[in-house]
């Protein structure tokens, strides 16, 4: 017999519509987070889950938390994640091959068991009364109610958390700091080294990308005066990513002929 004991009272109809639309989207985005290959896509999907949770908070009379969720999570935390992704390299998408054999199936089976246990327990739990609702607690406004609690009953945890924030900030600075082991090369020294390397091409610096008058873009190697392409004019990142266009199509003799044909 299925026991719907945790009858917490019915919510208003608009909220039910909101929930039934957004909850499947949130779950789909969360599952997508696990299956997409690129970390950036995972981050975008996670940001979406966080936005839906913020909407749920606001729907549940927790307006302040909803706003904080958007500002802190989708704003600050996700920005930090994306920033680190850029720093570490967007290309470092992992291979989805398993290092431990069968790990994925074990994980999925275990999680189905865990989730089933959690949900069936929730389904059988009893509260003994219906939802109280926050109309009384929020009678002076949600922010005022929270402020009153934080600065009376929860003032000690609040202070401890402020100490934690400062410690975390200092810790991150210590971890990110890195001591220079060799002396910094100045611009003057770099310039002198270029001239002493012997080659005149090195002394002049690298050519800029783009082909004059025919095609102008950072992904096309520049043409040297004799019409041959100069691969050194392209950023190494673009080259590694394979985004470099072939400049043969823009070479002088090819295009001269084409112009004459027209």
């Amino acid at each position: 017999m299925i026991n719907y004991a945790l009858d917490l009272g019915q919510t208003a109809k608009p909220e039910a519509v909101l929930f039934y639309i957004l909850a499947p989207l949130a779950v789909a985005a969360a599952i997508g987070m696990l299956t997409v290959k690129k970390a950036v896509h995972s981050a975008i999907l996670l940001a979406w889950v966080m936005v839906t949770l913020a909407i749920f908070y606001i729907a549940q009379d927790a307006a302040f938390l909803g706003i904080v969720q958007i500002v802190v999570y989708t704003g600050a935390v996700m920005m930090l994640f994306l920033f680190i992704l850029m720093l570490v390299g967007v290309d470092s998408s992992e291979s989805l091959t398993e290092t431990i054999k069968g790990l994925r199936w074990i994980a999925i089976t275990a999680s189905v068991g865990f989730g089933g246990l959690l949900i069936s327990l929730l389904g059988r739990a009893t509260l003994g009364r219906s939802t109280a609702g926050l109309a009384d607690a929020n009678s002076n406004g949600n922010v005022e109610g929270l402020a009153q609690l934080i600065f009376s009953d929860y003032v000690w945890p609040f202070e401890v958390i402020s100490a934690l924030l400062i410690t975390a900030a200092v810790g991150a600075m210590v971890l990110a700091h890195h001591e220079r082991t060799v002396k910094r090369v100045t611009q003057r020294e770099q310039s002198q080294a270029r001239f002493r390397s012997g080659s005149l091409a090195a002394a002049a610096g690298l050519p800029g990308p783009g082909v004059f008058a025919l095609h102008n873009a950072v992904d096309v190697p520049a043409l040297l005066p004799d019409g041959s392409p100069a691969p050194s004019s392209i950023s190494a990142t673009l080259k590694a990513r394979g985004d470099m266009l072939d400049s043969a199509q823009y070479q002088l003799d090819n295009n001269d002929n084409a112009a004459e044909d027209k």
């Binding site: 719907y4 945790l6 009858d7 917490l8 009272g9 019915q10 919510t11 909220e15 039910a16 929930f19 039934y20 909850a23 949130a26 779950v27 969360a30 599952i31 987070m33 696990l34 970390a39 889950v49 749920f56 549940q60 470092s92 998408s93 992992e94 291979s95 290092t99 790990l103 994925r104 994980a107 999925i108 999680s111 865990f114 989730g115 959690l118 949900i119 929730l122 389904g123 939802t131």
Partner: peptide
Amino acid sequence: MNSANYLYLSALLFTIGAVGVVIRRN
């Protein structure tokens, strides 16, 4: 709608997160 649905959603998201911690390598 029963408010307990939010709890079910929460349990589901928690489980999905736990699977991700185990199976992803990045």
